[in-house]
Amino acid sequence: MSGLEVEGIHVRVNEELVLKGVTLRVPNSSVVVLMGPNGSGKSTLAYAVMGHPRYRVEKGRILLDGDDVTGLKPEERALRGLFLAFQSPPTVESVRVGTLIREALARRGFPFSESEAIALLERVGLNRSYLPRGVHDGFSGGERKRLELAQALILKPRFVVMDEPDSGLDVEGVKLLASEVAGLAESGAAVLVITHNPRTAEILAPDRVAVLVSGRIVAEGGLELVREIGERGYEVVAG
């Protein structure tokens, strides 16, 4: 299959087995929403897909357009078109936003143009004054999410995982997010969006919705799942 695939992965963090056999398919040109209670393992899944060394995949495989990337380093996955927008991106004071964007583009063999970078920042509601700032240094919650989104757009990824890209965003921000996610899918990307917010899920109008509880996918379906969760909670959906 083409797209992003997670095949029966077991992921251990420190001593704890957090994901216990998760399978999820995100075809190209589609949007999948992943929901689940706090601590269910959503970010763990995102990190494992990106290849965080602390999140050890003990069983199962991660595939990008059918290629097994489970053994690859995060940077190698990135260069194969994978992008992760972080739930809580770290602050990197000494690296400027402009420098990070320039370097990330260079690794992909894309040219860097400052005016293009500024245009993209403006598109996500930031502006040129953010370019010389340290990455996420002093950024507000919403600004962090906007910078993550901007990078997703600049780097033209083919597989995108967004971990709560909507939390902290204002109403306009969520609308913007939805239209950019749609744009990414239209351009052929496989997009996985993790969210807690049923409103976001609805605006995104995803092709599929999956529900993760206690490290297992317990339900998959359409938007009706979101409504069900909203009304009856995860427990019932899981049961």
Partner: peptide, 15 residues
């Protein structure tokens, strides 16, 4: 931190 390193690597930079 490992998190910063991972963040930068996730953008395509070698360690």
């Amino acid at each position: 931190s490992d998190d910063v390193l991972f963040y930068l690597r996730s953008r395509g930079l070698r360690e």
